[in-house]
């Protein structure tokens, strides 16, 4: 059973179409990255999945209609919208009390064990904690909930590198298993790409690419051909080509690595590179903005 199943999911705000008829099928045990620029429809899609907004089309999450059955859905699904949503006035202890009070599948001792490994005092208020600690606290709460689906919307925004790493390490060590599914959006694509089992590229409210990382690894290869092999490489039909230090770099889709390796240096393209290339480089790298 897919834990998220959408057909023709659509959402319009006034005249602006935020999500333009997308189909999704996310299976159990996957870690899926939803990648797209700001305003591409990522958050709207997540909002629909989480039952925060009404939508058109059909959408089933853990077998529930999210908009009509949000309360039921939230017993199966956890989400971290971003790091700043825990109330500043809330004491750590009371945060545990409250979640224990309202969530039937919250294992308080698990959250306490996790917090014991951090520097977070139970007496502190959220407002007194550093951003990284707030994220740890939120993670402790979410991981102690025995939910099947975890949705993360920019979970590490504004955190320093150590906390970001610790976040994903904990996620893989203490939370994820084959019965759970994680759906994540982030701008720090480099940091999550090795964690992902699947990626979905979204732009202008449509899905541009939906593939497993295995597929992507098998399909896409980047080649920096030697001077004498440039023409031969071009004949193999690269999807796109650009120049680095004056040397051409080509992205191939579905050409065997063995075929390309003798022509020069080959590289597996990062998800971010791939996304930029699929979207068209000129659009995302305006003069002066190129990284």
């Amino acid at each position: 059973m897919n834990c998220i199943e959408a057909t023709g999911l659509r959402k319009q705000y006034g005249k602006k179409i935020a999500v333009d008829g997308i189909d999704l099928g996310i299976g159990t045990g996957r870690i899926v990255g939803l990648i797209g620029p700001n305003g591409a429809g990522k958050t709207t899609t997540l909002d629909a999945i989480l039952g925060l907004i009404p939508f058109e089309g059909s959408l089933k999450v853990m077998g529930c209609d999210p908009w009509r059955e949000r309360e039921r859905l939230m017993r199966e699904v956890s989400f971290i919208a971003d790091v700043a949503v825990l109330p500043r006035w809330l004491k750590v202890r009371n945060a545990l009390d409250y979640v224990q009070g309202v969530h039937p599948r919250f294992d308080r001792s698990k959250a306490e064990r996790f917090l014991a490994r951090t520097d977070i005092p139970m007496k502190a208020k959220v407002g007194q904690l550093s951003k990284g600690m707030v994220a740890q606290l939120h993670l402790a709460l979410v991981m102690a909930i025995d939910a099947r689906l975890l949705v993360l919307d920019e979970p590490t925004l504004g955190l320093d590198i150590l906390y970001r790493r610790a976040f994903y390490t904990s996620l893989l060590n203490d939370y994820f298993d084959q019965e759970r599914t994680i759906l994540v959006t982030t701008h720090q694509v480099e940091e999550v790409q090795d964690i992902l089992t699947d990626v979905i590229f979204i732009d202008h409210g449509r899905i541009i690419l939906s593939a497993t990382m295995d597929d992507i690894e098998a399909r896409y290869v980047e080649l920096m051909p030697r001077l004498e092999t440039v023409d031969a490489a071009r004949k193999l039909g690269p999807v796109t080509e650009y120049a680095v230090f004056g040397r051409p770099v080509m992205l191939f889709d579905g050409v065997a690595r063995g075929h390309l390796a003798p022509m020069g240096e080959i590289r597996r393209p990062g998800i971010a590179d791939l996304f930029v290339m699929m979207m068209g480089r000129d659009r995302y790298e305006a003069p002066g903005e190129a990284a």
Partner: peptide, 11 residues
């Protein structure tokens, strides 16, 4: 290994 390397378990 998955947690230490931050790589998905399938890999």
């Amino acid at each position: 290994v998955s947690a230490e390397c931050r790589v998905n378990p399938i890999t």
